[in-house]
Design a protein around this nucleic acid. Structure first.
Lengths: 231, 231
DNA sequence: GTTCGCAATATCCTATAGGATCTTTGAGGG
DNA sequence: CCCTCAAAGATCCTATAGGATATTGCGAAC
């Protein structure tokens, strides 16, 4: 390796970006929140995290600052951070209303604009999660949630409007929905609905794509709403 | 004060949130970026900021982490932060396209839903910036930008969908547009367009409100586009 | 029993220091 | 001249320490 490097100055691309500790901490704490290991409302004690993670306070503080911007933690000056609550019903309704405004539009644009390569990416994403177990456990729930998020992000990306994609990403929609555990069992329906969106996009039919996406989101909302009736 | 406090235990509300140094730093650096004191692409040297602001690195790092989430700085691990570029033409177009999708919808909803109190707030906001100078200087430009941002945020708020308002806020639309300095001179037109939106919202006419907002955003886009022709 | 005040403890926030990594500079060789 | 390499310097990142603030617990008074 050292010998191969000699004489190639300037011809190697820059190494991939390094992962620094604060990034690791961010992902770790995010995972704890996402998996409800730390419950909504829980105070996040910086000194305790220091002890438990075996690192200093500084990267912890930095990652908490980022998580605050993500809406996953709430900072109270001088008193610390706490995990944000899961969505209230009002927030849930706002989110879906917003989705119903943005995502069918995006799907329609994806139908108008997608190249053959784009369609391959859609197909690949659909193939990334097909093994729906009869009795969903936590891992399959998590895998489905991952597919769901990637699918929607991809459609937003194929809409060709990066502002819209980022805006949607910044709602952290699927992260918040993930935290509203609903026991699974509906992956088959969601996959079917995703497939209908993909079919319309492939046909290049924006009206049908928008309608399929709207239908999917409305169904998703209806499936999730009972969560709030149990509280 | 100490005497007044005696015997009133539990009856005083919690004091307003305290401002900590990292919050101050965040606003300071944000202001430097917004005012283009530090130009787009500039590296932000943490040690230099430490010396110039006379504080330690820690609050600086925290505020930079937040500014990264805001899209105002870009972090390159181990190499530091740099100020994000001003909007490219493509980003500008995406942003306006997104606005054209979101803001007329929001204005229409505001027209449907606003209470008398809401309308007072709109009126107050319109009254907050009326003194349009013949020859706009930097301060008036900044004041107009402030009004512009507050106005649009208020309409989003009156739409009644907090997800939408936050999503729009997180684009930092007016902050990015502010950095595209265009020399002013168009405040009178923008105010006239804002007034048309307010008039329609007051009438409770959602179609007219949406149309007025659409017209305003399209005009705003047309006014700003020449910025890119000069680059 | 409740409430208040005070001291002790815990936690948050920032400053400082040191190690790791990157960037710049200068010398030497072709 | 250009290129390479090594050393020096600058900067980033994290650990540690100390001061400021909030929280908790206990005892005294009512």
């Amino acid at each position: 390796m050292t010998d191969a490097h000699v004489g190639l100055a300037g011809q190697l691309t820059r190494l991939p970006q390094r992962q620094v500790l604060s990034d690791d901490v961010y992902e770790t704490v995010k995972g704890l929140i996402m998996d409800s290991v730390v419950a909504p409302g829980t105070r996040l004690n910086i000194d305790a995290l220091t002890r438990e993670l075996g690192i200093s306070q500084t990267p912890i503080r930095e990652s908490l600052a980022r998580l605050e911007s993500d809406g996953l933690v709430i900072k109270e000056p001088l008193r610390g951070y706490r995990v944000s609550s899961t969505l209230t019903r009002a927030e849930f309704e706002d989110l879906f209303e917003y989705r119903l405004h943005i995502e069918p539009w995006a799907a329609g644009r994806a139908a108008e604009r997608s190249s053959a390569e784009d369609l391959v990416r859609l197909k690949d994403e659909m193939l990334s999660y097909t093994d729906v177990p009869e009795r969903p456990d936590y891992d399959s729930y998590k895998a489905m949630a991952g597919h769901d998020q990637r699918f929607h992000d991809l459609v937003l990306e194929l809409s060709g409007n990066e502002t819209a994609r980022q805006s949607f990403a910044r709602t952290h929609c699927h992260l918040h929905l993930f935290r509203l555990y609903y026991g699974g069992g509906i992956a088959t329906q969601a996959l079917r609905e995703h497939k209908a969106v993909v079919t319309a996009v492939r046909k290049g039919d924006p009206e049908q794509a928008a309608a399929a996406m709207r239908s999917h989101i409305e169904a998703s909302r209806a499936r999730l709403r009972p969560v709030f009736d149990q509280q």
